[in-house]
Simulated scan of single mutants.
Amino acid sequence: MTNRDYQVGDAILVPWGLDLVQGTVVGAYGEGLGLRVLVEVDLGDGNTEVLPFPARALEATQQPGGHSPPGAWVQASRYEENLARELSRILHTQIQEWAGTVEVNAQLGQNREIDLLVHLPDRLLLVEAKHYTDSHRSLNTSTLNQMREYLRNQYNPPAVALIVTNAKVYPQAATHAEKYRESGVPLWVATWHEGDTTTELEMALAEALRFSIPG
């Protein structure tokens, strides 16, 4: 449930990963955990687009803290959708018997969502997509720590996780993930851009599929 009501015409901040974008409430639908707030977002080129947001995802973003450039949320959303298609393509290649789909903005329990979720024959694949409008940004190790907390939950089947970003993954973040794996936490990071052919994503995904999960 949301702690506030969203009225048509309200100016609010819209979350996407580490980005906050200004938007205007234009409507809502659903109720309870299914409530979606419709927000009109400036695409930055004179056009706007109306996008649905879970009300609970808006609660923590309504304090001023800096805005992302117009269109940042939309770019991140499109990156996530393209990544979902690429993951599906790779998985169908690497697991011939798999006939599933990649879920976008999937629910993990009552209070958590994951950008992409895949049900595989023997494990869950949790994927967090991090798109940055600033080409000089790099993946923050705090994102890895947050994903580790997701993996501490008990899932059936057990879960492995990927963090995929359009930014460069510097050695600090890669080493951080490697140390997690050495301690039994199945977490990988990879850089991926639309149009990539042979990618870090394919290699990281292959390792995640082979990883021997304790228990």
Rank of each mutant, 00 (worst) to 15 (best):
Q107A: 03
Q107S: 04
Q107V: 06
L108F: 00
L108E: 00
L108D: 00
Q110N: 05
Q110L: 05
Q110M: 04
R112L: 05
R112Y: 07
E113W: 01
I114Y: 02
D115K: 06
D115G: 06
D115P: 11
D115M: 04
L116S: 05
L116F: 12
L116T: 05
L117Y: 13
L117N: 05
L117G: 07
V118D: 03
V118L: 10
V118T: 09
V118C: 11
V118A: 10
H119S: 15
L120M: 13
L120Q: 12
P121M: 13
P121D: 12
D122H: 15
D122T: 14
D122M: 14
R123Q: 14
L124H: 11
L124P: 08
L124I: 09
L125H: 10
L125V: 09
L125W: 11
L126I: 08
L126K: 04
L126C: 06
V127G: 07
E128K: 11
A129S: 08
K130W: 03
K130I: 03
H131F: 06
H131D: 00
H131P: 02
T133Y: 06
T133W: 05
T133R: 00
T133S: 02
S135H: 05
S135V: 03
S135P: 04
R137N: 10
R137D: 11
R137P: 06
R137E: 10
S138E: 13
S138Y: 14
S138R: 12
L139N: 01
L139R: 01
N140C: 11
N140V: 10
N140A: 12
N140W: 07
T141R: 05
S142I: 12
T143S: 13
L144S: 03
L144Y: 00
N145K: 14
Q146M: 13
Q146S: 12
Q146L: 12
Q146G: 11
M147S: 07
R148D: 13
R148N: 12
E149W: 05
L151F: 01
L151Y: 03
R152I: 09
R152V: 10
N153R: 09
N153K: 09
Q154H: 12
Q154G: 09
Q154R: 12
Y155F: 01
Y155R: 00
P157L: 04
P157N: 02
P158I: 00
P158F: 04
V160E: 00
V160P: 00
A161Q: 02
A161W: 01
A161I: 01
L162I: 02
L162H: 02
L162A: 02
L162Q: 01
I163N: 04
I163K: 07
I163L: 12
V164W: 08
V164R: 02
T165N: 09
T165M: 10
T165C: 09
T165E: 07
N166K: 08
N166M: 08
A167V: 13
A167F: 14
A167S: 13
A167M: 13
A167K: 10
K168M: 15
K168I: 15
K168Y: 15
K168C: 15
K168V: 15
K168P: 14
V169D: 09
V169T: 13
V169S: 10
V169Q: 11
V169N: 10
Y170K: 15
P171Q: 13
P171S: 13
